[in-house]
């Protein structure tokens, strides 16, 4: 038996218990939960949150540093409904971090010549609650001296999340709402197109949000030859490459190869931007 000596990932995937140490509302039905500790995660990775006796679901990690893990969660079903009833010091299970996160640039190594000493230019585009993991990503870029712009979009103002935190963290923050209730009236992709016209060399675009939005962004970046990464959400049942629920049509496991992949890779998946699969493997159109 040789396998045990050659494991290439976490050997033990039993959930670990964490207490809810704090939580607050981000928007209607969207709450950030804080747990003391770390999952040693990288931005863009995800974890499985187990609400004992109900269910366990995947969530992207909104923060994992300074001894705290933050998960920004939307109330959508039985597990999150139960979670929203929980109080401080109530216990849940976490496992992970799983998956492949976003690339973090380092300006010290090769600065962007057009950024006048402000470091490599990174644009992060968040749609809806996709913004939460991008703040974590932006923070790591900024630590490495990058010049970070956040584009945050939602249907309407009261669905916008994390805008204040992005501004407070010193990221240039641009906002778009479909109804124009805050920021420009329109889509994040309009803001991005505008930046493409006005800015000089852009080193990296990263996006997390609705898949149709990400597909447009991926296509825009490929056309302009700008490096781009997207975070692909699929039905993650196990989180560690066994169940096969999260595979793309090409058979790539989004819980391991993804969720963060290059725009080129994402566009090569025939299902990207068109459909995903449900709990029984059935196709569901986006």
């Amino acid at each position: 038996m040789t396998c045990c000596k050659e494991l290439h990932h976490q050997i033990n995937t039993e959930p670990k218990v964490f207490e809810i140490s704090d939580f607050w509302e981000e928007a209607e039905n969207i709450r950030t939960f804080v747990f003391k500790g770390t999952l040693n995660s990288k931005p863009g990775q995800f974890c499985m949150l187990w609400v004992p006796g109900v269910d366990e679901k995947p969530f992207s990690i909104a923060r994992d540093y300074d001894g705290e893990i933050w998960l920004t969660i939307c109330k959508v079903g039985p597990a999150t409904e139960k979670l929203f009833e929980m109080k401080k010091e109530d216990k849940v299970g976490l496992r992970g971090a799983f998956g492949h996160g976003f690339t973090i640039l380092n300006s010290a190594l090769t600065p962007n010549p057009s950024s006048k000493g402000r470091g490599k230019k990174v644009i992060l585009v968040g749609g809806g609650y996709g913004t939460a993991p991008l703040h974590f990503t932006a923070t790591e870029h900024k630590k490495n001296g990058c010049d970070v712009t956040m584009i945050i979009g939602a249907r309407t103002e009261n669905l916008l999340i994390w805008t204040d935190k992005c501004e407070a963290s010193g990221f240039r923050t641009l906002i778009a709402t479909n109804d124009g209730s805050r920021g420009i009236e329109g889509f994040t992709t309009h803001v991005l197109a505008d930046l493409f016209d006005k800015e000089g060399h852009i080193d990296l675009v990263q996006t997390c949000g609705p898949e149709k939005m990400m597909k447009v962004i991926a296509e825009m970046c490929v056309q302009k030859d700008i490096p781009c990464e997207v975070s692909i959400e699929r039905y993650m049942k196990c989180g560690f490459g066994v169940c096969g629920q999260c595979v793309t049509e090409s058979g790539e496991k989004m819980c391991q190869t993804g969720p963060c992949v290059s725009a080129q890779k994402a566009l090569s998946y025939s299902d990207f931007g068109s459909y995903h699969r449900g709990s029984e493997g059935q196709r569901i159109n986006w």
Binding site: N12, T13, E14, M48, W50, E280
Partner: peptide, 14 residues
């Protein structure tokens, strides 16, 4: 169609 069980549905160790 058969929905199967809720999560956690699997875990492992060495």
């Amino acid at each position: 169609p058969h929905p199967g069980h809720h999560n956690p549905t699997m875990f492992g160790n060495e």
